[in-house]
């Protein structure tokens, strides 16, 4: 398999607070990796280091062989290959659903308005929101907004998708619709890194699960191994609280 993400000894400090204390991992093409762990464990920070939204304090992140935190790296070009979905959706409130989706493809990829429009059309069909194409974000429910956010990221045709607790800000009845879109994406072979509290989703969809605590990967393995046969005491303690 092709390695698309390589993390070597990644550390991150906010002032004196050590959030990441040396993370190593490797993610292969088409792999779905779920990152679980207690809040404050550093899992979101880890994800945000993967596309350079956070600087690294030490260590290295390579995406497709390119060093993310090297000042000489064209970070915009790199990010256009890495889609990201946020906990709080972060749709652009002054733009319609269509404009949210077509902004980056037209400005960054140089697509014509017609090309971008037809791509947006396809993606909205995929996430089941074609009827909302001219709506503004504040006219949509949370689940709908998150599905638009996924479509917006996919419109750049990224090689990797990062999800930062994509269902944590949603009302319970809307979690399912977002997870269904993500599962379909996983089945198509998208490389995905998902920070999540949805253990059911991790168990069902992930190829591999990383358990992060206090800035370190405490344990990793297939969902079956990690959830049913955890080796570490900390993993067991965490799972007993959330399962």
């Amino acid at each position: 398999m092709d390695e698309v993400i390589r993390v070597k000894g990644l550390t991150k400090q906010f002032g004196t607070l050590e959030v990441l204390r040396g993370i190593d991992c490797s993610i292969q093409a088409s792999e779905v990796v779920c990152v679980i762990g207690p809040s404050g464990s550093g899992k979101s920070t880890f994800l945000r280091c993967l596309n350079g939204l956070e600087d690294a304090s030490g260590g290295q992140v390579l995406v497709g062989g390119v060093s993310v935190h090297d000042p000489k790296t064209d970070v915009d070009a790199l990010r256009s290959e890495i889609g990201m979905v946020f906990q709080r959706f972060n749709l652009f409130p002054h733009k319609t659903v269509l404009e949210n989706i077509t902004l980056a493809p037209t400005k960054v990829r140089g697509l014509s308005a017609a090309q971008a429009h037809s791509r947006a059309h396809e993606l909205l069909v995929k996430v089941g929101l074609l009827d909302k194409i001219d709506a503004y974000p504040n006219q949509l429910s949370g689940g709908q907004q998150q599905r638009v956010a996924i479509a917006r990221a996919l419109a750049m045709q990224p090689r990797i998708m990062l999800f930062d607790e994509p269902t944590s800000a949603l009302d319970p009845e809307m979690v399912g619709e977002v997870l269904a879109v993500m599962q379909a994406l996983a089945e198509e072979g998208m490389t995905m890194v998902v920070v999540t509290h949805e253990m059911g989703f991790a168990r069902q969809v992930a190829d591999r699960v990383l358990f992060i605590d206090e800035g370190l990967v405490v344990e990793e393995g297939t969902p079956a191994d990690l959830f049913d046969r955890p080796q570490e005491e900390r993993t067991r303690r965490f799972l007993s609280k959330v399962l």
């Binding site: 596309n51 939204l53 749709l91 902004l103 980056a104 960054v108 990221a153």
Partner: peptide, 11 residues
């Protein structure tokens, strides 16, 4: 989050 969303799209 607005800036982060935009930058993460490659803008």
């Amino acid at each position: 989050g607005q800036v982060e969303a935009s930058r993460s799209l490659g803008l």
